[in-house]
Design a protein around this nucleic acid. Sequence first.
RNA 1: GUCCCCAUCGUCUAGAGGCCUAGGACUCUUGGUUUUCAUCCAAGCAACAGGGGUUCGACUCCCCUUGGGGACACCA
Length: 477
Amino acid sequence: MTVITRFAPSPTGYLHVGGARTALFSWLYAKKTKGEFVLRIEDTDRERSSEASVQAILDGMSWLGLDHDRGPIFQTDRFDRYEQVIQQLLDEGKAYRCYHSQQELDDMREQQKAKGDNPRYDGSCRNLSAYPEDKPHVIRFKNPLDASVVIDDLIRGHIEISNTELDDLIIARTDGTPTYNFTVVVDDLDMGITHVIRGDDHINNTPKQINILHALNAPIPKYAHVPMILGDDGKRLSKRHGAVGVMQYRDDGYLPQALLNYLVRLGWSNGDREIFSVDEMIDLFSLEAINKTPSAFNTKKLNWLNQHYMKTLPASEVAVHLNWHLVEQGINATNNAKKSAVIEALIPLYAERTETLKQLASQIRFMFEDFKEFDVKAAKKHLKITAGEALSTLKVSFESLVDWNEASIQNAIDETMTKLDIGMGKIGMPLRVAITGSGQSPGMDILCALLGKEATLARLDKALSFIEQRKLQAEQR
RNA sequence: GUCCCCAUCGUCUAGAGGCCUAGGACUCUUGGUUUUCAUCCAAGCAACAGGGGUUCGACUCCCCUUGGGGACACCA
């Protein structure tokens, strides 16, 4: 039997990390079993659903690389089918019309709560003598009155809920539109879903859905309820509470691979292993290894993974994502073979000292355009009057270089050190500030080589005149 | 209120009755490497919620308590 899983978000906002992880688990399981992954958009709530949200979900999925084999299927396209099934249930006496107004139901619940009872529909329309079709009504499913429903959850094991806890849920609203618990059942059935992998906030819906499935004489899929994700503060992650959209992570400079790796380890594990490529995830994944406990999102660990992937993924692959940030930050570094070679050379150098692509992009800006001003602290400390001699001597040495490369540059630096009898700190740091404008950077030899001779000399001049000016100011005082 | 689910370092987790003096990872601290900043390497801090059972033996099984989460919609 082919495994068919699905991800069924409702388009009421962006794709957040919790949803993304559920989608990932479903996707992985389908891939692992060489099954099928279906994307279904649950948009029966027309008031809250939006086109923009549909697009945001699609964008998030595609950025993560979670491709679907079928879909997206929209529930709003399937109203005819829902109506047909509702009619069938009505015909078979498994559902009935109910004429209570919303106000009456609210009052009923209110009273039950006041008495300390379970707030639920009392089933008083179950046995009416007549069911006029023209009078405003909803349609309710006749839930079994006794016995209990058993879920053999792949993650939680045996769960049993008594039918006396359940009431006759509404499957069609007054306007005739079907409701969630009903559409899910019809869809999962029609789409041949074999494994329902979803958040554990749906555990309570499962028995209702199973009862409807039974009424339809349908096979019961396997269920796997994955725990929720909590925020940094241990509170449940929700759209209102720190649940950042997946695309926000792209904007913040994370690689999809890093987010995927982070997400898969949230609630799932394979021994002590921390690093998983997508192929390895597929290979090692199993539903049984998913934890029962909710887990908290920890940005620090995500950062670590992100840096790990910036360092270890092929530079050409990182470059694809980095370029997006360069454009975003208005850094003119693309559309040029020479520049992309420089970028790829810069990636391993800077990946070691940044945690996100966003930071990386901003730190290599100096390579593609002149910086406006020196970092104040760095300039104060290293572009001192005494550094003038070192830089001007180095400049002469640089000018005479025929071959402009890492080795020759380092050689020139070494020679200058010997000549002036100074240490690396006295020349390396001034040079660093002169070239990059800041006090931290990778090795100066490689940086100068990548920057080019002409630009290097120009920056040296700039630093020299900065020092000159400083000297003048000092004399004036 | 009722029902359901959950419970190992701050966080993510390993642990399927003896392998546990509870392991790994992130974070943090300290040291080493390093021309800066990082990286890297080494070391350290740090947990089985509490109470009862079961058993020769419980982190592992059962019960209770406590704590957290979720659901009880004409939302999904």
